[in-house]
């Protein structure tokens, strides 16, 4: 299976997904770039064990979230400076400033969610269905639904607080 998957093609297709996952965990631009690089390398190394038991996008999302969790643990220990409220420094320049405000608030709000909720909501926003999220995170569909409901309520609260 893995020999059919070429890392260059995978990165072209899925680097934006990894970048969005990274953005929901890391506000600092340079640390985020390091994290995206780390995720890409982890995907490449893990491809050797990919047997096609899940969709490749789900496989990549799982690895991206795992590397992000690892990153948060390391950063928390190293500097105790993982600032969840820090605004994003760079986002796509194609959006208008008005849209930019909304996007910054959404991403900042996502970073304020508990990680268990954040992962589910971020994957839903990415377009994954409950079964795929369950596979990516190792949760039952009922658990995914519960986290999605609670996460969404928390997200609304955070966004309405501003």
């Amino acid at each position: 299976m893995s020999d059919k998957l070429d890392i260059a093609t995978l990165l072209k297709e899925h680097a934006p997904l990894m970048a969005r996952v990274a953005t929901t965990y890391e506000a600092d631009e340079s640390l985020r770039e390091d994290l995206i690089q780390d995720m890409s390398l982890a995907v490449w190394r893990a491809l050797e064990s990919f047997r096609g038991e899940a969709n490749i996008k789900t496989f990549i999302a799982r690895i991206a979230h795992n590397r992000a969790v690892d990153h948060v643990l390391k950063e928390t220990r190293r500097h105790d400076r993982h600032n969840l409220d820090e605004p994003l420094e760079s986002i796509s320049s194609s959006v208008t400033s008005n849209k930019q405000d909304i996007e910054i608030d959404l991403m900042t709000a996502l970073r304020k969610l508990a990680i268990g909720y954040r992962q589910v909501i971020a994957l839903q926003l990415e377009g994954f269905n409950q079964a795929e999220i369950g596979i990516a995170l190792g949760l039952t569909e009922a658990n995914v639904a519960q986290r999605a409901r609670r996460g969404r309520a928390q997200l609304e609260q955070i966004l309405n607080r501003r």
Binding site: L11, P16, R20, T23, Q37, I91, M107
Partner: peptide
């Protein structure tokens, strides 16, 4: 929509060479 539009810019070729 906001989530997708908030995708940071990525230079895939640079990323590939770094990786």
């Amino acid at each position: 929509n906001a989530f997708k539009q908030a995708t940071p810019k990525i230079d895939v070729d640079k990323l590939l060479s770094q990786v």
